[in-house]
């Protein structure tokens, strides 16, 4: 049981407002209402600001501005610096200036300059896609085609067969380059694949339900074990 803070103290207000915010969001379960919309908008405002400050705090400042301005170096008592300034960091001014062209999107006349940066980012994503796709895809591909015979274990052999059959039949479901004949091999395999994928979707659905339920349980637990005792006391 969490400790109940003193009445009207900052801790008490924190609990009161947290519970009230939670309940305000849950009023949506009845119907759309002004209280829900106010808190929803407030959340958007604070979450946006939080995201921006977090980006500055954890990336822009330590990874870009600090090294560029030489502030990541230490000044020792004798006035010397812990390390030499790396001039290479000045080159970061190029991506900074280039990135600022994003804001040209706000003007009609220079909008094309923003397209230049967007194009650069799309090209970057496109070039990285090769590395990303193959480094993720190939290990999974190699792992998928498992041995049908595991010495000394019938259960493992059967499991591996089931695994490969599920994969191949599910893939077959998405093959549209074959001519599908009613009762043919491709059609039958595709139909089995569809059944197995239904099992996969069910399992996913179950996992998603549990993830959301965990959040709901946490909120209800907070209301019951922290908020109500703090209000009643």
């Amino acid at each position: 049981m969490p400790e109940i803070p003193e009445y009207w103290s900052i801790g008490w207000w924190e609990i009161f407002l947290a519970g009230f915010s939670t309940l305000a969001i849950y009023t949506f379960l009845y119907k759309e209402n002004p209280l829900y919309r106010i808190f929803e908008h407030f959340y958007i405002g604070i979450a946006t600001a939080y995201g921006i400050i977090a980006t500055i705090r954890f990336f822009v400042w330590p990874e870009l501005l600090k090294p560029m301005l030489g502030l990541d170096r230490i000044e020792f008592p004798d006035g010397t610096m812990s390390e030499e300034y790396e001039n290479l960091y000045l080159l970061y001014l190029i991506p900074v200036c280039f990135g600022l062209l994003f804001y040209c999107i706000l003007t009609k006349r220079h909008k094309w300059l923003a397209e230049l940066v967007i194009g650069c980012q799309l090209g970057y994503a496109g070039g990285l896609a090769f590395k990303g796709t193959f480094s993720e895809l190939l290990p999974q591909l190699f792992d998928s085609f498992r041995s049908f015979y595991v010495p000394g274990s019938v259960a493992d052999s059967l499991t591996n067969i089931f695994f490969v059959v599920t994969l191949v039949t599910s893939l077959t479901y998405f093959f549209f380059t074959f001519k599908r004949v009613e009762g043919g091999v491709v059609e039958s395999a595709s139909s089995v694949g569809r059944w197995l994928m239904m099992g996969c979707f069910g399992a996913f659905f179950g996992s998603t339900i549990m993830a959301r339920m965990a959040l709901l349980v946490e909120r209800l637990e907070y209301l019951i074990h922290t908020w109500i005792p703090a209000m009643v006391s």
Partner: peptide, 14 residues
């Protein structure tokens, strides 16, 4: 603790 985390959790738990 009063707004950001509770509102986010409540919103997603909906």
């Amino acid at each position: 603790n009063s707004f950001l985390f509770p509102l986010g959790a409540a919103m997603f738990s909906l």
